[in-house]
């Protein structure tokens, strides 16, 4: 993984679209807060490497899509920020 992109805004926010548009092929996306609603939105095409913060997914009763890389805990989130060469929060 090159860059970990952490998004907290819902898919309707322009920031969400900007993030998807600028992601590199080696990058991963981490959905937190309102951004996890992207998993319930069938109109959103997500990149290959997607993680979502489990607590936020559960809180919103969102059924994870089949194509998602995985739900992560806060402990995993810490590991992801260390594994990534850099982290961008959107």
């Amino acid at each position: 993984m090159h860059t970990l992109h952490i998004v907290s805004k819902p898919p309707g926010n322009t920031r969400f679209r900007e993030c998807l548009g600028m992601m590199g092929e080696q990058d991963a996306l981490l959905l937190t807060g309102n951004a996890v609603t992207a998993l319930a939105d069938s109109t959103i095409t997500l990149p290959a490497m997607v993680y979502a913060l489990q607590e936020d997914v559960r809180a919103r009763a969102i059924d994870p899509r089949q194509d998602i890389s995985g739900q992560v805990t806060f402990d995993d989130m810490v590991s992801l920020t260390i594994r990534a060469q850099r982290v961008i929060s959107w």
Binding site: G33, F74, V78, T81
Partner: peptide
């Protein structure tokens, strides 16, 4: 070593809570 920057306000955003969950995990690790 982590520095956490919080730019979202409590009650109008989840930023302080996400940051706190992250902060606890940082120290746990």
């Amino acid at each position: 070593t982590f520095t956490l920057v919080i730019t979202g306000a409590p009650y109008s955003s989840q930023a302080p809570e996400t940051a706190l969950g992250f902060a606890r995990a940082v120290l746990r690790a």
